[in-house]
Design a protein around this nucleic acid. Structure first.
Lengths: 166, 166
DNA sequence: GCTGCACAGTTGAAGCATCAAGTGTAGGGT
DNA sequence: ACCCTACACTTGATGCTTCAACTGTGCAGC
């Protein structure tokens, strides 16, 4: 790893790698402790909660949370067992399954969001400081374009046109 | 998640979250395909390969790769089974176990490093562009200081004082 | 030199992610 | 009308990570 990146690049990369290791662990710890949720399952609930009608096709939800359909299906099964999400067929399209946030799920998000947002603010937003939030946005945007040149930009629907819902 | 961060912050955070999801997956995919290694197990081998004598106490190695001792122990067991790492007691300190990179392990690192470094360069370094590498370093440094104010800065031993080893 | 506590590390069980294979629906070609 | 490919999921097995409990060593106090 040492010989193919220069010193500055290597240093930045190691820090990036450390952040990628520690930050998800820290956020998971807070959510697990306070709500018994994974960061990922919380994200699923949160994204549903922000959609018109709190319903979304599984595929679209998968894109929104940057995951495979398989992963999402497993997670939704667990969330369904706990009564926070329900599955229903899509009228007029037999191969689509809709995931719907239940009332209990909505309550769960409302109860969980402030603590999680505070942790995100503490560990990320306040850490980088207000002046550098734009830099963070630019850098992650650049990396995302490499990671996923085509689609999935639904996960960050700004900078471009209006979000025309589903 | 929407109501406790302003629009700019929220946008930056969503991109960050997407990167934290997709980047490890992309790097893992390359390593798995080309070398049958996890990003994490590769990191363990790589860090050992850069140490004087290619030996390190388990605890120190755990700090270096930002992981728990438990996780490291499991991974080292697997690496040991494949013949890339060996464990040995530490002369003069009965409760320390040393992890040593074997010759086969060294070969493995040498064979794997170029491809991995190229992927890191492609997805991260070149993506952010040469001008912004310093920004990336500053931002991840700031986040790291929040995540781990005290120790573990061994993973990025610059910018501060001399690393007085163990 | 014994006791008690903290450190270094290991282990086993449980949960989550990933992969490969399977089900069933849409729609296009003939 | 029929097949055939592509799509939208689901499912089960495998492997890695995490958590809690455990073993054994060093060391401070008495």
């Amino acid at each position: 790893m040492a010989e193919w990146l220069n010193a500055e690049e290597q240093h930045a990369w190691r820090r990036t790698a450390a952040v990628m290791t520690l930050l998800p662990a820290a956020l998971d710890a807070q959510l697990q402790r306070d709500a018994g949720l994974t960061q990922f399952s919380y994200l699923v609930l949160a994204m549903l909660s922000e959609t018109e009608g709190r319903v979304m096709p599984m595929s679209e939800l998968a894109s929104t949370v940057s995951s495979s359909l398989s992963r999402l299906s497993h997670v939704v099964s667990r969330l369904e067992q706990q009564g926070w999400v329900s599955r229903e067929p899509c009228a007029g399209n037999g191969r689509v399954t809709m995931a719907r946030l239940t009332d209990a799920g909505w309550e769960k998000v409302v109860a969980t969001a402030p603590g999680h947002a505070a942790e995100v603010r503490r560990l990320v937003i306040d850490a980088v400081g207000p002046c550098r939030v734009a830099d963070l946005d630019a850098i992650t945007g650049a990396i995302l374009r490499r990671l996923d040149p085509a689609a999935r930009m639904r996960a960050n629907p700004m900078a471009s046109e209006g979000a025309s819902g589903s």
